[in-house]
């Protein structure tokens, strides 16, 4: 007698908890050949609202941690990802229909990118900051600081690499994120949430919504408490009007990217979500 399979219901990740959608909706995740794979929560605008509240509450703790500390916490996540490698490979094989070796190289690439960004946490200020030239006996220093809550539309045609490439750079500077995962391939995102929940990342720093980006994105774009909007995975949406909505509250916006080079690791993705603070200080008491 064959054993009955126990399909998993993938829930949202908001404020360090795994709630169902406030709306009670779920949608079916299909495998590459169109068969049933799992149920995932279909987030509503109110879930997005709750996620922004959770993200806002987490900003001060995460952005005030030292860069060194953030780097350690992010590196720890990469360690945990490595330990769950097999689970991620299984999910990618099931949902994308690729071979285990292809899935394995995707997971490796995602972990490597995560580590690459983790290393920047205590270094990007040295590169992006500056001691400005002045004609007086004082220092004038510009330093980049986290902008606050970043809403991200994750790449829609990638399970793990796209998600990691969009989320990791925003975290480096001390931002907190609300990310809408790939609608068709959300399993890796929620599994990553399970990694985050058991790591040292404070609750609310990463909030993950699954469901329809077309439904949720306009609410995030117009939300006055969101400071920046990464539209990297929004090429299939009406992203022009999302940009217009975001402009109402002067959000920083990154445009959609597509193709194999989408969201390649770069320092620019880190500094995109920072604000520059310039301060002066006397050189001496002479």
């Amino acid at each position: 007698m064959s054993r009955l399979a126990v399909p998993k219901t993938y829930k949202l990740y908001i404020g360090g908890k795994f709630p169902r959608s406030e709306s009670g909706r779920v949608y079916e995740i299909l495998d590459a050949s169109g068969g049933f794979l799992a149920n995932a929560a279909q987030a509503s605008r109110k879930d997005a609202r709750d996620a922004v509240v959770a993200a806002r509450n987490a900003v001060s703790g995460w952005s005030n941690a030292t860069g060194y500390n953030r780097g350690q916490v992010l590196y720890r996540i990469a360690e945990l990802l490595e330990g769950r490698r097999a689970q991620f490979i299984d999910e990618i094989v099931a949902s994308e229909g690729v071979s285990p070796s292809v899935a394995g190289s995707q997971v490796d690439e995602a972990i490597d990118r995560w580590i690459w960004y983790a290393g920047w946490a205590d270094k990007y200020t040295q590169v992006a900051g500056n001691a400005n030239a002045v004609s007086g006996p004082y220092f004038n220093i510009s330093v980049p600081e986290a902008t606050g809550v970043v809403a991200i539309i994750a790449p829609q045609d990638s399970s793990l690499i796209g998600f990691v490439s969009a989320v990791a750079p925003a975290l480096v500077a001390g931002n907190t994120v609300v990310v809408v995962a790939s609608q068709r391939l959300p399993l890796s995102a929620i599994s990553l949430a399970e990694v985050l929940a058991t790591s040292d990342v404070p609750g609310g720093v990463v909030n993950i919504l699954t469901g329809s980006p077309a439904e949720i994105a306009p609410w995030l774009a117009s939300h006055a408490d969101v400071n920046a909007l990464d539209l990297v995975g929004a090429s299939d949406l009406d992203w022009i009007s999302l940009q217009i909505a975001a402009a109402e509250t002067l959000m920083r916006v990154l445009p959609p990217e597509s193709g194999p080079d989408a969201a390649l690791p770069s320092l620019a993705r880190i500094t995109a979500f920072t604000e520059t603070k310039t301060v002066w200080h006397t050189k001496s008491l002479i």
Binding site: V52, R56, W219, S222, H223, A224, D225, A245, T249
Partner: peptide
Amino acid sequence: GHYSGADY
């Protein structure tokens, strides 16, 4: 019609 924030 859109969510507001503590800055407002």
